[in-house]
Design a protein around this nucleic acid. Sequence first.
DNA 1: CATGGGTCCTGAGTGC
DNA 2: TGCACTCAGGACCCAT
Length: 301
Amino acid sequence: MPELPEVENVRMSLETLVSGKTISHVSVRLPRIIRQPENPRDFEEELRGRRIEGVSRRGKYLLFAVPPYTLVSHLRMEGRYALAASPSEALQPHTHVLFDLSDGTQLRYRDVRQFGTMDLILDTDPLPKGVSELGPEPFDENLTSRVFHRLLAQRQAPIKAVLLDQNVLAGLGNIYVDESLFYAGLHPQQAANTVSKQKAATLLVMIRQVLSRAIDAGGSSIKSYVDGYGRHGGFQIELAVYGREGQPCVRCGGPIRKTRVAGRGTHFCPKCQKLRKQTRMRQQSGTSGQATIRAGKRVVE
DNA sequence: CATGGGTCCTGAGTGC
DNA sequence: TGCACTCAGGACCCAT
């Protein structure tokens, strides 16, 4: 389930693997993957002969620069790219789109659940729906704790639901929302507009910390995630709450609980993440609650 | 507009 | 062993 750290790792691998290469042929084997243009044949035709100038990322979207087009690709749950040394290499199951490249290699898109999407759009045209409406990038320097607090203050849904909303903040998914809330000591059900300024500031710090550590670890491979080289991520072993139902909290030792919030499986520590009705929370001194992620691995004790 | 639930899809896991 | 059922969740669609 690629979230920002996984997509960023895929982006980095693709940047190395396909950037600067020219597309000589495209084959769409499963039309439902292509959202724009309407006819997948046009998708194939328009990409032929184009050079991939680079690969960037916005939220969980990959953006291939193929002037005068941008290929917008979303992996959703299980989409993945791999580079085959040659088109004659045996196809893995669920391979839906093939890009023959000028150096004889072939970029392949696989997606077991067929949820992923591709949009090919002219650079003079507006970006596809989901992309144009995305909230700020978590690492955007214009996203101050003040701005972040204001974003939260506009919503009364549970903080978990709000963090999952890509129009509020781009890039978080189920795993990193649970992790960030744990480190910030926030209950997933707490109404977003009752999160204090200080808690919001802490939350933003934790989001950034969790994401950057996950990026460095190569992402989290819960089920199927691999980057463009086929490499698994390593962050799953550092997860504090996600997927750890019943196991001891890394901070207090109590059991991690799993519930359902915003329709998603939600993991949290009932002791470390208390539900508070009021926003009033005075700053405690230095030793106050929040856990920090230590360098290296989780500190269990 | 904000919110929440259903939907797409396949494979893994569970219980009988 | 086989089969029905549930679950996984990102973004979109729709009803409230």
